[in-house]
Design a protein around this nucleic acid. Structure first.
Lengths: 224, 224
DNA sequence: GCCGGGCTTGACCGATCGGTCGGTGAAAAC
DNA sequence: GTTTTCACCGACCGATCGGTCAAGCCCGGC
């Protein structure tokens, strides 16, 4: 039921869906995330929802559509979710906000996130696969824009932009494999730690402001 | 056939296996990696090998055993493979070597790597799951040891060791999702770039040697 | 009363799943 | 020359897969 409520208020294009549909999407997402698409049967989903298998076909035309609503339907939302949480300010802090917002999305829509980032990454459905890539590209290009912005502003050095984006996204995308909601920090805190490590580096040594650089931002390190 | 030869000379505990067994493991690994465990049928594997389905059961007792030989059987080897490629020298360079060696393993045993890091990550088989976790822990603890070593030597600042390990492994573990063998750099080169980003940081600014630090190592950045 | 229309169901379908079985043919062992 | 061994195959099994269908159930409007 917690899945249900968090999904309702977050994923915009599913706002008008009935409770039953939201329940099915929540349970299906959880199952897809834990057992994969092929490993999850329609009977499994029906059993988890406490309904008959036939009812699934009353609300959805087939298994693919359920998956599409779970995984594909929320990929666009990720971009919108994150974009709306980027504050005005120095570009490097926008990157930090990008990472924290992505982590928040992961925490709130965990099963949909896992299903969309792990299962079906080589989708046999050509059209849907293409659409997912388009949405994914929009999300990644947004990050690359922030990185380029930070380079232009002189806040980060002239690194390879796509490669930097991949490093940042890797740290976030892999989180679901080791994150334990009962232990350690929140996803947002973890994203903040990763930003610090990637931005400031692990290396010991004094950091000295460049004369041309903008005024110092929050969270700067002065070595140990 | 290339899969076959690379697998034969690399994965030690499969050295005595017949060509047919190696062929099955290679094709099965490729299929598991692209379609997942549940999404790959025994008929698929047999067809890919150009043999009958019955022959699979002549060489393996069941589908699980094939998966175990593909994924679990090579996880220990990853640790040994990487350990043997860590040179003597400054701890930070050991970390770099760790990343490069892991990337080399990824390049050479790509399908086994993908199968072991993606499919079946919540294994219904309790015993095998536990064994995989043990092997995985050994690999990760080895990295954490290197990180602690670098901290003790004063080469990297006092960061959270497990979290640092997760950041480094994330960058490597996610590589299979975007790496294109026909384009861009080799996995080893990518690992080197990631090490530079994580070790030196993205941040602009002059780095000044600490007086107590050891003599400079290769690859140091002197700002932009 | 009763009637129409969504929500819900169990029985059922053809296809495919992992796995088994008896048998073949050729080389190795005796 | 006979027997044993072994890689290999086609036919087949029960179970489960995704999906269909006709028929009930429930409930507000008449």
């Amino acid at each position: 039921m917690t899945e249900l409520s968090t999904m309702k208020d977050g994923v915009a294009n599913q706002a008008e869906a009935s409770d039953r549909v939201l329940q099915i999407l929540a349970e299906a997402g959880r199952l897809f995330a834990s057992k994969g698409f092929e490993g999850t049967s329609m009977r499994d989903i029906a059993l988890a929802c406490g309904i008959s298998k036939s009812l699934l076909y009353h609300h959805f035309s087939n298994k693919d559509e359920i998956y599409a609503r779970v995984a594909v339907g929320s990929t666009l939302e990720l971009y919108l979710f994150v974009r709306d949480r980027i504050p005005d300010g120095p570009p490097s802090q926008k990157i930090r906000a990008f990472m924290v917002a992505t982590a928040e999305y992961f925490r709130r829509y965990r099963w949909a996130w896992i299903a969309s980032t792990t299962a079906f990454w080589n989708d046999p459905d050509r059209h849907r696969h293409k659409e997912r890539l388009t949405r994914r590209d929009r999300f990644e290009n947004f990050l690359r824009g922030l990185i380029q912005e930070a380079i232009d502003a002189g806040e980060i050095r002239k690194v390879d932009v796509p490669m930097t984006g991949r490093l940042i996204l890797s740290s976030l995308n892999w989180m679901h494999r080791w994150y334990n909601p009962n232990k350690s920090a929140t996803p947002e805190q973890i994203a903040d730690i990763f930003f610090d490590m990637i931005f400031n580096g692990l290396r010991s040594g004094e950091l000295v402001e460049l004369p041309t650089a903008e005024p110092p931002k929050a969270g700067r390190r002065k070595s140990r």
